[in-house]
Amino acid sequence: MPSLFSLTYYDPPPELARHVLALFHFEWDEPAIADRHPGALGQLVLFPYGSGHLHMGAEPAAIRGDAHMLAGFETAAPFTMDGPWHAIGASLSPLGWAALTGEPANTHFNRFIPAGSLIGPEINDFAADLNVRYRAGDLSGKQACDLLAQWIAPRLTEQRAQHERLIEYTFRWLGSSLNPDVDLLFAGLDYSRRQSERLVTRYFGLAPVALARKYRAVRAASLLAQPELTDEGEAEIASAFYDQPHMIREIRRYCGYTPTRLGGPGEPLFQAMLRMKNLERLKDFRRIG
């Protein structure tokens, strides 16, 4: 069966590596699309084609316009789109979200947000122009991603040095294992436990315990979505949960489905996004200290 969509990732320029985890170009040319978004980290995304709805509250929320942002979702977010649907985007680290928006992540969770309302009207003009050029065939997906990175770079603001260290340490803590020790996080931060919880929530959108729980489920689902699960990956998953029913419950809670490897169908785009480079980048932060 031919693939329904294409999803290509590009590394950001080295000077953006702390703020942008990956650039991506996405195409799905079906007329009607339904899937889920894991919402593990923030994004700035341009839609040359496609509009639809996010289904998280009592009423569907419209997704339409040239540029959107998301800070993250507590659980996987179901959405429907009228295709064709194309996207040019940047997956943002927590530092990248803060430096680009100046806003706490936790106050913007669980929704797609018109980008102009967060980062100013310049993004609307930029996105409208880029999307027109893309639709005309004047820009490839890679060229559009490069232009997006160039637009982002001069608009990143500096954060307090102590807060940057907190973000980087928390990111390393998250990547240290599938089930990181919360006490180890607090021991490595230069704040009281209460201050640490408040700041982690501000930059990551969730308090440390909830954050670790979500990432455990998303990363376990990511490993299970791989065509070949290594013995090391299988052992890591087994040690992170009490038993298989516990693992299935947690993945279903945070991802909305049972992994294909365990007998569930799984949405195709969601499966692909679980293999996103932004999750893979957690491996770069394994060592705490």
Rank of each mutant, 00 (worst) to 15 (best):
M81P: 04
D146P: 01
L118K: 01
F241D: 00
R194I: 14
H108Y: 15
P48G: 02
G175Q: 02
A128R: 15
R202A: 11
G233I: 07
Y169M: 05
P14M: 06
P227A: 05
E122T: 15
W97A: 04
N278G: 02
D190A: 12
N124A: 15
I237P: 00
T260E: 04
G42L: 01
F47T: 14
L189H: 03
P227I: 13
P48I: 05
I152C: 06
F5I: 08
A90P: 05
A77S: 04
I63D: 09
N278W: 13
P208D: 02
H19R: 15
E232Y: 07
E15C: 10
A149W: 01
C145G: 02
A17M: 11
G233T: 08
D243L: 01
Y9Q: 07
T201P: 03
A105C: 10
I63L: 10
P12G: 06
E168L: 14
L147K: 06
V209L: 12
P94V: 04
A225Q: 03
A136M: 14
R111S: 14
A61M: 10
H108T: 10
N124F: 10
G266Y: 09
G57M: 03
R275E: 06
E197K: 09
L139I: 10
P227W: 01
F5N: 11
L92V: 02
T75C: 09
A235K: 07
N278D: 15
F109H: 04
E232T: 08
Q195T: 13
H108R: 02
D190K: 15
I113Y: 04
L100M: 05
K283Q: 15
Q162Y: 10
A210D: 14
F171G: 06
S91G: 08
P60N: 10
R155L: 09
Y9K: 07
A61T: 12
D82H: 09
